[in-house]
Structure formats: structure tokens, C-alpha cells
Amino acid sequence: MRKIHLAGAASLALLLAACSGNGADNGAAANEAAGAEAGHPGGSDHADKGTVTLSTEQIAAVGIQLGRPIVGGAGTLELPATIEGDPQGTQVVSAAIAGRVVALNRNLGQSVGRGQTIAIIESREAAQIKGEVGAARARLQLADSNLAREQRLFSQRVSPEQDLIAARTAATEARIALAQARSQVSAAGVSGDGLNRLGIVAPISGQVIARPVILGQTVAADAELYRIANLGQVALSFNLQPADAGRVKPGNIVTVTAAERHATARITFLSPALDPQTRLVPVIATLDNRGGMWRVGESVTAVVRLGGNEGVSSIRVPTTAVQTSAGESVVFVRTLKGFQATPVILGDASGDTVIIRAGLKGTEQIATTGSFTLKAELGKGEATHED
């Protein structure tokens, strides 16, 4: 691997030397390349760490283009994002008790109104709950009848007051028992004509976006039967670097684009904590979808405008200007003798540019294309010094 690297460096040195136009210089450069290939120091000046010495003619010959960083007062970020159902408008529909699915009244994509019965489950537990309601109702009727009789007898001074009090207590207890049985029915969502039938009703109006069960399937308590979403408003989910999150606030506008469609969303949630896995800041924006233009799960591009940070303007460079050298990101800054590999701290990419958080002032002239050639020349010099 070492010989291959040095051979490539030697070829680059020959190319650069060929551009000088001086025969003696060409011979020196060729001797230098041969020496580098043999593992001996060449004649290029790399005394300063990160310095690449090139003339103007050599820069033009190898196709290196120069430019300056883009300095803006705000800056934008282009980030991958996903359309999700609005957390406030999405609800899972499940059965509170186990049973067998005997009816599914809505299919995927169909609309449903709040309170409509969308599924029916047969369950022994449903039959037991309904039976308890019937028994409690019968006990209450008996207790009320007994209370009426005791009131009549007490008014005729036939029964003592103690019997009347006991009848009132029994009627009160029966009424409480009936209320408890009805509460169990309500909690389980039990409805329908059959004694063992459990009717599942829609808790919200919206559209069915998931139906993970099939007819005849036996489901456990709390198993998901449907997922209903009100898609008139959807959520846009994306992530920010922690440093960029400080320049974004709830209420900021986000431009959403995908497949010749575009719209604007407004940031409603900026997480105060990093995601433990990605180490990024989750962000959610709300997007009007009454026209049905956006689909849940769709991948889109979010363009986030960054606010100013204590008066500091954002600095961006083309992604082609950035290389990695010795484990750190560098940008090659033009000097009187060539280029200096300047370490930088990168931010998020925005299209074909990347934000520079530190390392550049924004006034430098840099190599916007051809930086890989400079990286190779820099590597040749470092290898020469190591030998």
C-alpha cells in the first residue's frame, strides 16, 4: 500500500512539474518524483505543516478553482424529513377485553366518524359483563319494590322504622351495584345486540391508516384493531445538530419540498433533550394537509432558516472544498506560495454547501474544486518527511 501511495504522489509531482515551463525545473521535479518513489525525500518545500506549494500556472493546470466562502446573515439548512400523523390527531383503537373478531366495518383509507361502530368482537367476558348489568338491574328493581312496600307499611304503622331503613339501604346498595356494572360495560366498550358481542366505536373522526387484524382472528385485551388519523393536519419530523438547534425557535417557518410539491410548515416542538441514539435534537413542525397533498410516511426535504446567533453570520463553503486530513476536516486556503490546509469545524449540510462553525473568517480565498488534488499533494509531502 505504501508503494502505491508514493507512486500516485510521484505522478502528481510530474504533472505539476510539467506545468512550470522550465526545463531545469522539470528535471528537478522528475528527480524528486523518482526519489519519492524510491522512498527518499524529494525537493518540494513542505517544511510548514499543512502547506502545499503551487504556482498560479500549476493551480490552473490541475483544474483547481478558487472562490470565497458564502457569508449570510441567517443561513439555511436542507435536511431530510418525514411526514407523520399529527400526534394530537392520531389514535389507536383497541378492545379492552379479549375475544374473536367477527366484523370489521371499515377498510384502509376509508373515513370514519366519531362514535361509529367500526368492529365487533365476540367474547365470553363481554357476556359476563352484560350479565352482571342485567342481574344488578333486577336486584335494583326488587329492592325498589321492597322499599315501596316498607314505606307503605310504615305509614300504616304496621312495620317498624328499622325495616324501612333496611329497605332503603338495600335499594341504595343495589343502585350502586348497577352503576358499577354499567361502568364496567363503558370501560370495556361493550355494545351490540348479542349478549356476547363487544362493539368497538371510533374515538375520533378521521381516516383509517392501519388495520392490523383480520376477520376471525382472536385478539388479546388492548390489541390494536385500527389506527385512525385526522390527516387535515400532519406533522413534519426532522433532526438538528445541537449547535443549530440554538438558532431555531418554535414558530419558525420551514419550507417543505418533494416531487414538485412545496408548502410551508411551522415548528411547534423543539426537544430540550438529545435523542439518546442519534445525539441529535428532534424537531416537529405542523403542516396543513386539508388538500391531501402529503402522505404519512413520505420522505421530504425540509429547508430550515437559521436565525442569527449573537450577531454572527453563517459561513458556508461548497462540500467539494472540504477534505479530511489526519482525522480532521480541512479547507485549503490560498496563500502567496500555494495553499494552507486549515482545520475547520463543520455544521449541517445545506444542499451542495456545508456550514463552517469555526476555522474560517469568511474573507479567505479557498479551493472550491480540486481540493482532493491538494490533499494528495499534502499527503506526499507528509510521507516524504516521515521517510
Rank of each mutant, 00 (worst) to 15 (best):
Arg100Phe: 13
Arg100His: 13
Arg100Gln: 13
Val101Cys: 10
Val101Glu: 11
Val102Arg: 08
Val102Ala: 14
Leu104Met: 05
Asn105Gln: 13
Asn105Pro: 09
Asn105Glu: 14
Arg106Asn: 11
Arg106Trp: 11
Asn107Glu: 15
Asn107Cys: 06
Asn107Tyr: 10
Leu108Asn: 09
Leu108Gln: 02
Gly109Ala: 09
Gly109Ser: 09
Gly109Ile: 15
Gly109Phe: 00
Gln110Trp: 05
Gln110Ser: 14
Ser111Gln: 12
Val112Asp: 00
Gly113Ala: 15
Arg114Gly: 03
Arg114Ala: 15
Arg114Leu: 12
Arg114His: 08
Gly115Cys: 04
Gln116Trp: 11
Gln116Ile: 15
Gln116Thr: 14
Ile118Arg: 08
Ile118Tyr: 03
Ile118Ser: 07
Ala119Trp: 05
Ala119Phe: 06
Ala119Arg: 01
Ile120Thr: 12
Ile120Ser: 07
Ile120Trp: 07
Ile121Tyr: 03
Ile121Ala: 01
Ile121Glu: 01
Ile121Cys: 02
Glu122Met: 11
Ser123Asn: 03
Ser123Asp: 09
Arg124Cys: 02
Arg124Val: 14
Arg124Asp: 13
Glu125Gln: 07
Glu125Phe: 03
Ala126Tyr: 00
Ala127Ile: 00
Ala127Leu: 10
Ala127Thr: 01
Gln128Ile: 07
Gln128His: 04
Ile129Val: 06
Ile129Gly: 06
Ile129Ser: 00
Ile129Phe: 03
Ile129Gln: 03
Lys130Tyr: 08
Gly131Val: 03
Gly131Asp: 02
Glu132Met: 07
Glu132His: 11
Val133Glu: 01
Val133Ala: 01
Gly134Asn: 11
Ala135Gln: 06
Ala135Lys: 07
Ala136Asn: 07
Arg137Tyr: 04
Arg137His: 06
Ala138Asp: 08
Arg139Leu: 09
Arg139Lys: 08
Leu140Thr: 01
Leu140His: 10
Leu140Ala: 09
Leu140Asn: 04
Leu140Trp: 06
Gln141Met: 13
Gln141Gly: 15
Gln141Leu: 11
Leu142Thr: 14
Leu142Ala: 14
Ala143Cys: 05
Ala143Gly: 04
Ser145Cys: 02
Ser145Asn: 11
Ser145Ala: 13
Ser145Pro: 10
Ser145Lys: 13
Asn146His: 12
Leu147Val: 02
Leu147His: 10
Ala148Glu: 10
Arg149Cys: 05
Arg149Asn: 12
Glu150Asn: 12
Glu150Arg: 00
Arg152Glu: 04
Arg152Pro: 09
Phe154His: 06
Phe154Tyr: 10
Ser155Trp: 05
Ser155Asn: 12
Gln156Thr: 11
Gln156Lys: 07
Arg157His: 10
Arg157Cys: 12
Val158Glu: 03
Val158Lys: 01
Val158Leu: 13
Pro160Leu: 08
Pro160Asp: 14
Gln162Trp: 00
Gln162Thr: 12
Asp163Leu: 06
Asp163Glu: 04
Ile165Tyr: 12
Ala166Met: 04
Ala166Lys: 01
Ala167Lys: 00
Ala167Leu: 08
Arg168Glu: 15
Thr169Phe: 09
Thr169Tyr: 10
Thr169Gln: 12
Thr169Asp: 11
Thr169Gly: 02
Ala171Phe: 08
Thr172Arg: 14
Thr172Lys: 13
Glu173Lys: 13
Ala174Lys: 09
Ala174Trp: 03
Arg175Val: 08
Arg175Ile: 02
Arg175Pro: 06
Arg175Cys: 06
Ile176Gln: 14
Ala177Asn: 03
Ala177Trp: 00
Ala177Asp: 02
